[in-house]
């Protein structure tokens, strides 16, 4: 039986910790998350959200008036009208400014955290 001295054992333990730490980080990147933005009191809450590319955002309308969620700069996408109590999801891959095209002063921002 090979006897490992204490220094070698410590070195192996240290290498293992570094290895598994990297593995956990990669696992987090590979599993997209779901974030919820509440539409409440005529605001997107939170108005600024940092996410990773590939994450899903769900907007939930808690107001009693109808809202929508529309990409602001080029109008690339829109949820179409969301009645009270309804929700809509989208996968996000880039920084996005959006707004409610019905109440055009209501604005939100998604930032991709690299």
């Amino acid at each position: 039986m090979i006897k490992l001295n204490r220094d070698v054992k410590n070195y192996v333990i240290l290498l293992s910790l570094l290895f598994f730490n990297n593995c956990n980080f990669d696992v987090q990147k590979d599993h997209p998350k779901l974030y919820v933005i509440e539409i409440k009191q005529m605001q997107f809450q939170p108005a600024l959200l940092k996410v990773h590319a590939g994450d899903t955002i769900e907007w939930v309308n808690h107001d009693f008036v109808t809202h929508d969620v529309t990409e602001e700069t080029n109008k690339d996408w829109s949820s179409s009208p969301l009645a009270a109590g309804t929700s809509w999801r989208m996968v996000i891959n880039k920084n996005t400014d959006y707004y409610c095209s019905i109440h055009q002063v209501m604005k939100g921002k998604l930032v991709i955290d690299r």
Binding site: Q41, M42, Q43, D63, V65, H103, Q104, V105, M106
Partner: peptide
């Protein structure tokens, strides 16, 4: 109140 204030802000815009 939030809806009224948003309407005002929208109208001013």
């Amino acid at each position: 109140m939030p809806a009224l204030k948003t309407h005002l802000e929208h109208a001013e815009m």
